[in-house]
Design a binder for these strands. Structure first.
Length: 593
RNA sequence: GCGAGCGUAGCUCAGCCUGGUAGAGCGUCACCUUGCCAAGGUGAAUGUCGAGGGUUCGAAUCCCUUCGCUCGCUCCA
């Protein structure tokens, strides 16, 4: 995935973002704060447009998705159930000599003889150091090798000629406290908690710990039943949410790409397990039949739904100016998949600093809803009368066949999870039986397809993608560079700039203001009367404004046939055309919607 | 969190080595000019030289600490 870095391109983008007011560093006047960013006037408009287009596409233009807007702080147990409490706090330790970092639980256990030192003394200056240290060497190695490493350690701490103090040794077995590469003692494990912690209520003690959500998805799972019961939806259907999430990233990097506070646009789309689909419709649609390119069908299983959502998401990106050629689809290999995922596709954008993930579309099975059912004790199952009836009508051979296939699938999943081979058959059989009995009653825990996009990453991709410099030659043959943000008109922060040709002619100014007021209820308009007209065009080019309108003397009727017409200037081509004021809305609106 | 480099006007940067209380270009603002693609005229604003401390008669300049940025390591469910 690594590509040659192009810092120059990125620096230009960052510079433009600040210069024109797209993105500022958070708390800049206080020295900034790492991993936090603010959107300026243009950035705020851009982000709002992107989020609204996502919301429009994902919920309002569909009849099978509804919205949710949940709190950032939720019951802490949710993060236990989701697995974040465990997977988000990796204790780490460092080699005291090479500074290499290890996951404390992933150090290769070492055995041998440990040599301990109480400290060291500098033979030249007489300076003493009482910091203890120890080195582990393999059995049979001479003590000199331990002394060499220990000397290195104290030298690094400023001693010139090291005299080791208080050496003693003892055998050690399977210790994970030493660096396997050089035997040096590692620092004590320190927790790296990637969730931002806070306290709910006035007392800041451990009973009141809560976390800022590291993803918006869990709220959807937790509210799944409420949404189902109140929205008049039934599976398959989805719940969409846009909101802030927080991760205490070790290393925020690449401008806004990896921030500690960021915004997600997530959909959890709930579907029937394939076995339920098969019971209802006799068979499950296959991906190679190509149906995923068209409208959803009742006989889709998870694979087709997954493929469908990948396609939908790519089409969304195309619709806001990220063509397929700027994107990459990365289908994770089976061994890269998280334990809960059946398949994950990353949609990547070719950023100047490398090709990086914009969105992940995961087929998560029933993992999340099952976890919350387990931890909360509340059912996350749905019931379908039709399923119960359909199951009742299956012949015995079909039922046996389904049971066998479910058992085999459960067996594989359990093996992958690390269940002992001796127990796996019984466990798989029991689980499959329970599952089938539920299906027979028309009940199941829905499976889920999760398209999860980063709003801020998308903004950054749109900005990088839009940035262009081009050589322009003027009438006098002079060459110059035009910086233009080729933002898709649908996301552009300002849709149209309105300019009186000259500002010292009140007739032009008042006409221009009238045009501005005509357009303003329908779109974001920027009025500018400062400086030469060309300068104002170029200023809007840098802001990504797709249209410019200039009011001149012909607008006022100098040439009677041009009365009430204006110049409409197009950002990308710089072409101009004469358009009647009365036709402006019908010319511009289709482009920005 | 570790290592290396960097931090001077809105932006790009000079000055730092060889201490003597800050500059250029672009941009911004106002007025004039401007009859359709940034470069005309006049005038103006802007930095406690990232922050704090130390050395010194005197620090943007030397030293220490800290914060931020970039790169590498680590991490990325």
């Amino acid at each position: 995935m690594a590509e040659p870095k192009s810092n120059e391109a990125m620096e230009k983008v960052v510079s433009l973002c600040k210069r024109r007011g797209f993105i500022f560093q958070s708390s800049e006047s206080y020295g900034g704060i790492q991993g936090f960013w603010d959107y300026g006037p243009l950035g705020a408009e851009l982000k709002r447009n992107v989020k609204e287009l996502w919301w429009q596409t994902m919920t309002r233009l569909r009849d099978d998705v509804v919205g949710l807007d949940a709190t950032i702080i939720m019951h802490p147990m949710i993060w236990k159930a989701s697995g974040h409490v465990d997977t988000f706090s990796d204790p780490m330790c460092d080699c005291r000599i090479t500074k290499r970092r290890f996951r404390a639980d992933q150090v290769d256990p070492q055995s041998g003889i440990a040599y301990f030192y109480t400290g060291a003394r500098d033979a030249i200056t007489g300076k003493a150091m009482d910091e203890p240290f120890s080195v582990l060497v393999a059995l049979g190695k001479p003590p000199e090798s331990a002394r060499k490493v220990a000397t290195q350690f104290y030298t690094l701490r400023g001693l010139q000629q090291v005299e080791l103090q208080g050496e003693r040794s003892e055998p050690v077995k399977d210790s994970i406290r030493y660096n396997p590469e050089n035997g040096a003692l590692l620092t004590d494990p320190r927790p790296f908690n990637l969730m931002l912690k806070t306290y709910v209520g006035p007392v800041a003690d451990e009973d009141n710990v809560a976390y800022l959500r590291p993803e918006t998805a869990q709220a959807i799972f937790v509210q799944f039943k409420n949404v189902l019961e109140t929205s008049r939806q039934s599976v398959p259907f989805g719940v969409a949410q846009i909101g802030k999430a927080f991760r205490n990233e070790v290393t925020p990097r690449n401008f806004t790409f990896r921030s500690r506070e960021f915004e997600q646009m997530e959909l959890e789309f709930f579907i029937r397990p394939d076995e339920a689909v098969e019971a209802l419709y006799g068979s499950v649609a296959r991906v190679d039949e190509g149906g995923w390119q068209k409208e959803p069908q009742p006989n889709w299983g998870w694979e087709v739904w997954h493929k469908y959502w990948v396609e939908q998401r790519v089409r969304f990106y195309e619709g806001i100016g990220l063509s397929r050629s700027t994107l990459e689809e990365y289908w994770q290999k089976p061994d890269e998949l998280a334990h809960y995922a059946r398949a994950t596709v990353d949609i990547l954008y070719k950023f100047p600093f490398g090709t990086q993930e914009l969105e992940g579309i995961a087929a998560r099975g029933d993992f999340d809803l099952t976890q919350h059912q387990k931890f909360s004790g509340k059912s996350t199952e749905v019931f379908e009368e039709d399923l119960k009836n359909a199951w009742g009508k299956l012949d015995d051979a079909k039922k046996q066949d389904l049971l066998a296939r479910i058992t085999a699938a459960r067996r594989q999943a359990l093996l992958k999870k690390g269940v002992a081979a001796s127990e796996v058959d019984l466990l798989a059989a029991t689980e499959a039986k329970t599952f089938v009995e539920k299906l027979a009653k028309g009940a199941y825990v829905p499976h889920v397809i999760e398209p999860s996009a980063g709003a801020d990453r998308l903004i950054l991709a749109l900005i990088c993608n839009a940035y262009a410099e081009e050589e322009v030659t003027d009438d006098k043959g002079k060459k110059e560079t035009r910086v233009v943000m080729r933002l898709h008109p649908r996301v552009a922060p300002v849709k149209v700039g309105v300019f009186p040709l000259l500002k010292n002619r009140p007739e032009l100014v008042s006409k221009a203001i009238a045009v501005r007021d005509l357009l303003r209820p329908h779109m974001n308009v920027f009025y500018d009367d400062g400086g030469a007209i060309g300068r104002r065009y170029r200023r809007q080019d840098e802001a990504g404004t797709p249209f410019g309108i200039t009011i001149d003397f012909d607008t006022l009727g100098e040439k009677p046939e041009l009365l009430d017409t204006v110049t409409l200037r197009h950002r990308d081509s710089m072409l101009q055309e004469r358009v009647p004021i009365a036709q402006l809305l019908e010319r511009i609106l289709p482009a920005i919607r």
